[in-house]
Amino acid sequence: MARRRDYSYISPCVKWTLFAFNFIFWLFGLLLVGIGLYGVVFTAQDLHGLKSVKIAYIVLTDLSGVMVALGSIIFVVSFAGCIGALRENLCLLKLYFWSLTIFLVAELIFAIGCILFPWKSREIMESLLSKRLIEDYRESQNTQNFVDSLQRHFECCGITTDGYQDWNANEYFNCSDHSPSAEKCGVPASCCIRRKNMTHLNSMCGYDVQKKKAARGFRDN
């Protein structure tokens, strides 16, 4: 009786290339989840004393929560591709294929929307970012550090075309008459220009900036 030959549905070259590629992304997803979980714990401790629902909302929409969600998706999809290629498991390979297909279609829809409606898409993105980053600036240390880093790196102040006036949407920097905040009508210190010969930045340099029509030593969009 003839001995049955082993048969592989996948080329060895494709198999090990797919495995190596997804293994790298699997490690990357795992790293994102680990960093995100550390940030979630840090943020939850920082918000001690608030209501559970508010803490959950801030944590889930915080940068660390986004990292956990994104890392989990990358981890699951790359795991399916990695093990599916290694074991030649058609179910896992189909999961990997359809996941990538969905991501590609979503990216194409987003890109087409941005091309066809550039101003509307920009308006939506600015509105979402302004609400999450500007209004919740003081709610999370992670968000605060992220916004400060962006403003220093890109040398800007605010997110939308209104520039530094975006900070009027934050309850601490709001210019309304009933605002009790000491930072009323101000902006974060990260909006201030740090000159080359400066060794220390004045943390109060952004105070009362929104009252001025043209501020010197200070960034705008």
Rank of each mutant, 00 (worst) to 15 (best):
L92W: 03
L92H: 03
L93M: 09
Y96F: 11
Y96I: 04
F97W: 00
W98F: 14
W98E: 03
W98M: 09
L100C: 15
I102V: 11
F103I: 12
L104A: 15
V105W: 01
V105D: 01
A106K: 01
A106Y: 00
A106V: 04
L108R: 04
I109E: 09
I109D: 06
I109M: 08
I112R: 01
I112Y: 02
C114V: 08
L116I: 07
L116P: 10
P118E: 13
W119G: 08
W119R: 11
W119H: 15
K120A: 10
R122A: 04
R122F: 01
E126L: 01
E126P: 01
L128M: 11
S130L: 02
K131T: 13
R132W: 00
R132L: 05
R138V: 05
R138Q: 07
E139K: 10
S140T: 02
S140R: 01
N142L: 05
T143L: 05
T143Q: 03
V147K: 05
D148P: 12
D148I: 02
S149Q: 02
Q151K: 07
R152S: 02
R152D: 11
H153W: 01
F154V: 06
E155L: 03
E155H: 08
C156S: 10
C157I: 05
G158C: 00
G158R: 00
I159T: 10
I159K: 01
I159Q: 02
T161C: 13
T161H: 12
T161Y: 02
D162K: 13
G163E: 05
Y164N: 14
Q165I: 13
N168I: 09
A169L: 06
N170C: 12
F173Y: 13
C175S: 09
C175Y: 02
D177L: 14
H178L: 00
S179A: 13
P180K: 08
P180C: 08
A182T: 12
E183H: 11
C185S: 08
C185M: 06
G186V: 05
V187C: 14
A189I: 11
A189E: 15
S190T: 07
C191R: 05
I193N: 05
M198G: 06
L201E: 15
L201M: 11
N202H: 05
C205D: 04
Y207E: 15
V209I: 15
V209S: 12
Q210N: 15
K211I: 09
K211V: 08
K212L: 12
K213Q: 13
A215D: 11
R216P: 14
R216C: 09
G217T: 02
G217V: 03
F218V: 15
F218Y: 15
D220T: 14
